[in-house]
Amino acid sequence: MLVLRGASYRYAGYAKPAVHDIDLTLADGEIVGLVGANEAGKSTICLVASGLAPASIGGGLTGSLTIDGEPMAGRPVHELAARVAVGFQDPATQRSGIAATVFEEVALGPMNLGLPAAETIARAREALGLLRIGDLAERDPSRLSGGQGQLVAIASLLAMRPRHVVLDEPTAQLDPEGTRLVAEALRSLAGTGTALLVAEQKTDLLDTLCGRVMVVSDGRIVADGPTAEVLGDERLEGWGVEPPSRVRLARLVQARGLDPALVEAGA
């Protein structure tokens, strides 16, 4: 379980914190969605929850990050990495650039942990298997589609066997097919007990993927609850978040004096 308590974070060189008083709990096997307008603080929360802020990028953090009861303050990034992994939106910049094959790319993390070669190989195989991309193992990682590239990036994180995975807009640069591939992979990953925090603009995707959704606005968490409740909240558009198609359509139907349940019937 990953827990942020009263976390406020200020980037190095800035006077004011980018996010304030963040409380976040990520339980095993849970997929939590994080939505908010651009610049509201989604990416910052991802960096704080993964410990990269401040461990890697500096800045000032008040409040605490604990994982499975242990405080993470002051730990080096490579120690954090084995507990919580973080992925970003661009598959190209997440590639190491030094691996000739997908397998080598995925094996890089466990190898960096100093594990014996046999263990590294086993973990890389397992990670590829989890995302069902074993058939990409011998491919050149720089010559994959966006969706495949993102799956390889996620597999590279999974090979570290983290219990918690934070993803910052993992489908932003993908086409609908790539988005579907990543969503499927995340579902099966949560099935193994891994906890996931997914920041996304695509509320239609979160609507079917997450059990819980949090909304960030102006650097603060303004809503946190079951998916249907939060994504159906009247205030969502005011926070700069597009409601899922289902919700929008039901509202339009209701505004016309018709039964919104008809939308569910058609969906």
Binding site: L52, I57, F88, T93, L113, G114, S156, L157, M160
Partner: peptide
């Protein structure tokens, strides 16, 4: 971005 992505894979260990 790349150095962050590498660090989370324990590159700095």
């Amino acid at each position: 971005e790349r150095s962050l992505a590498l660090e989370v894979r324990a590159f700095g260990r």
